[in-house]
Design a protein around this nucleic acid. Structure first.
Length: 653
DNA sequence: AGCACGCCGACT
DNA sequence: GTCGGCGTGCTC
């Protein structure tokens, strides 16, 4: 008699552990580690789950019931992925099962059938090894001095890589960012050693770009894409492909970091500071953290590559976990144009001149902060937001010629006057991308003006002169690079209330500057101070280090970690009391908001395990303990908010 | 989540 | 004496 240890597919924290089931004779052999199973639960309920391992004996031998069925023979839960899910869940005070939901795409029966059919002849559950391909493409230069990459893959070394700015020409005549070519080369070398590489990039346009760069150096049948833009079927097909015992290059977004790639040699993460790398689903594990833990567990190499340096990456360099390396490149030509009168000249004279000059030789990128026409209208006198007379909503204009209307109730603001100063005149607030485009079209009558924003992003523009107005993050690549780059609305971008604005702005400006051709002028308008200096001198790591030092003094992340505890006041108090005995832990709050308490716990990295396990235990207690603390209220009382724990939430700062 | 077990009030 | 109320705790 043997037993199957099963992880249940349930969101309940109290079920987040392994359950033992007997393997009935008729399922002997079919129940194998990694397969999806159906199992009974007390009360005639059926649950789904994955077999984590088989065992000869069990503590629960008498209580154990039989595995009900094997859903399919595909071994979709890789042992290494299970270990990763367990550790990440523990670190994030969440369920391993929640991680598995990200790691294993939903089953597609038809896709799986085709996959298993192709494995005919191989022992059950063990896919056939495909013959190694004939001599592949020639390996590209790595271009990172002092980096023994082959040795690094062997020894599992970790790096913060600064990529060279500027686009590069690909073999097929196309263009890609230098960063993409660099990462493609690292992945190709890893593959040449017979090891898999995982490439994680923030958004689908980065996937496209990197896929182009990879196509020159990796055979197509060795490349597996796992991105959010794919259909469910394509994603599952790609996922199953990574289960085969042969090295591949996995390219994708956040969840690619969990791919069960065979003989993993390296994890390569592009632009770890991009907010798209934050996982929006519980337990909210950042891809950077997942990559760090996985690289340590797998003993594989890790590269955090960027044009700049996130404070998190800088911290890892400071503590010696990452070694800083870079692709040598000339420093970009960045000029600062500080407006004489603050808020007046949105496009300073230097920027106009630069654009005019550059337009003779190629496209000019204009980065703006906001999409659309003009999101808000302000009072022309007192500069306060113009409000709807009827409902108090913000007034805006849908296009240049449209009448101002309320963004909430839609009422036209016919005879408007400012509720504050009585003025009858409005002026546009921040100009959006299309408004800037109109403005520029007027100023440069015989020039093409292209717009790229979140709604209709462009990926590539040709090398002919054009003004390319793009919102931050939606900048197209230009063939040969931009002849000039103008960074507008910097002041407005920096004015956002968040601890991380400066990092974020510097990162986005750096990425825009990196789209310029070598030596092309780039103008940052209306911003001074250390952030602007860091961009102009192209010394982002030093800025990151200063940020980190300041945050260490204030005890802000990433100098420390944090946990947000929310819920009913007594539940929050109970959870916090579990932390009393720990040192290097302090609590901000709790503060009350609509019957819900919220507290922020800060702690040093060394305390992470203790804090997470204490909070997790409190969460389980609150989920299993007396459900209705106030049993007296029998009617539909406003349901008590359960306890919620979130580790390292950047949005609270 | 759902369901079984368990310890106090009205009943054939 | 027993049936059943729902609070409490467990799920291999």
């Amino acid at each position: 008699m043997s037993f199957a240890r099963v992880v249940l597919d349930s969101p309940l924290p109290q079920l987040d552990r392994l359950f033992d089931y007997r393997v009935p004779p008729e399922l002997e052999g079919a129940v194998a580690p990694g397969v999806r199973v159906r199992v009974p639960l007390r009360g005639g309920r059926a649950a789904r789950g994955y077999v984590v391992e088989l065992a000869e004996r069990s503590e629960f031998a008498e209580a154990a019931r039989d595995v009900a069925a094997v859903v399919s023979p595909a071994r979709v839960l890789d042992p290494a992925v299970w270990r990763l899910a367990r550790e990440l869940a523990d670190r994030a005070a969440g369920s391993a099962n929640d991680i598995l939901r990200l790691a294993i795409p939903p089953r597609q029966a038809r896709v799986e059938k085709a996959f298993l059919g192709a494995q005919q002849g191989a022992p059950e559950g063990v896919p056939a090894v495909q013959p190694p391909a004939a001599a592949g493409p020639a390996l590209p230069e790595l271009g990172v001095p002092g980096l023994d990459w082959a040795g690094a893959v062997q020894r599992g070394e970790r790096f913060a890589l600064t990529a060279a700015p500027g686009p590069v020409r690909l073999e097929d005549g196309g263009w890609a960012g230098g960063w993409a070519a660099a990462l493609a080369a690292l992945a190709a070398h890893c593959l040449a050693q017979g090891r898999s590489a995982i490439l994680c990039v923030p958004d689908y346009r980065d996937v496209e770009q990197l896929a182009r760069a990879l196509s020159a150096v990796v055979e197509p049948e060795r490349l597996v894409r796992l991105d959010t833009r794919q259909s469910e079927a394509a994603r599952y097909r790609g996922f199953l492909r990574t289960l085969l015992p042969q090295p591949v290059v996995v390219l994708g977004n956040r969840s690619a970091v969990y791919a069960p790639a065979h003989a993993l040699g390296a994890i390569l993460l592009w632009d770890d500071g991009d907010p798209l790398h934050r996982e929006p689903l519980a337990p909210y594990v950042h891809v950077r953290d997942a990559a760090l833990v996985r690289a340590r567990q797998a003993g594989c190499a890790l590269v955090l590559a960027a044009h700049g340096r996130s404070p998190e990456a800088e911290r890892l360099v400071r503590v010696g976990w990452l070694r800083a390396v870079s692709v040598p490149a000339p420093r970009p030509h960045v000029m600062l144009a500080t407006a004489a009168e603050p808020g007046s000249a949105r496009i300073p004279p230097l920027a106009w001149r630069t654009a005019r000059e550059a337009l003779r030789t190629g496209p000019v990128l204009v980065q703006v902060g906001q999409p659309g026409h003009s999101p808000v209208l302000l009072c022309a006198e007192c500069r306060r937001p113009a409000r709807c007379a009827r409902c108090g909503g913000p007034l805006r204009k849908a296009s240049a010629s449209a009448a101002p209307a309320c963004g909430w109730c839609g009422a036209l603001a016919a005879a408007w006057n400012c509720a504050h100063c009585g003025s009858e005149r409005m002026r546009p607030g921040v100009a959006g991308s299309s408004r800037t485009a109109e403005e520029l079209a007027k100023a440069f009558p015989n020039t093409r003006v292209l717009v790229s924003d979140g709604q209709s992003p462009r990926t590539l523009v040709d090398a002919r002169p054009a003004l390319v107005v793009a919102t931050r993050g939606a900048e197209p690549l230009a063939a040969g690079g931009y002849a000039a780059v103008l960074l507008l609305d910097g002041e407005r971008m920096l004015a956002r209330e968040s601890l991380f604005v400066a990092d974020d702005c510097l990162r986005q400006w750096s990425n825009a500057v990196a789209l310029a051709r070598p030596g092309a002028p780039c103008v940052l308008a209306g911003v001074g101070g250390p952030v602007a200096q860091a961009l102009a001198t192209w010394r982002q790591p030093e800025f990151a280090r200063r940020e980190l030092e300041q945050r260490a003094e204030l005890r802000f992340p990433p100098a420390v970690r944090s946990a947000t505890v929310t819920g009913a006041p007594d539940a929050v108090a109970e959870a916090l009391s579990a932390l009393d005995a720990l040192d290097d832990v302090d609590v901000l709050g709790p503060v009350e908001d609509g019957g819900i308490d919220r507290a922020i716990v800060r702690f040093g990295y060394a305390r992470g395990e203790d804090v997470a396990s204490a909070l997790r235990a409190a969460l389980v207690r609150s989920a299993t303990g007396r459900r209705r603390a106030v049993a007296a209220g029998r009617a539909e009382e406003p349901e008590l908010p359960r306890l919620r724990i979130r580790m390292d939430d950047p949005d609270v700062w």
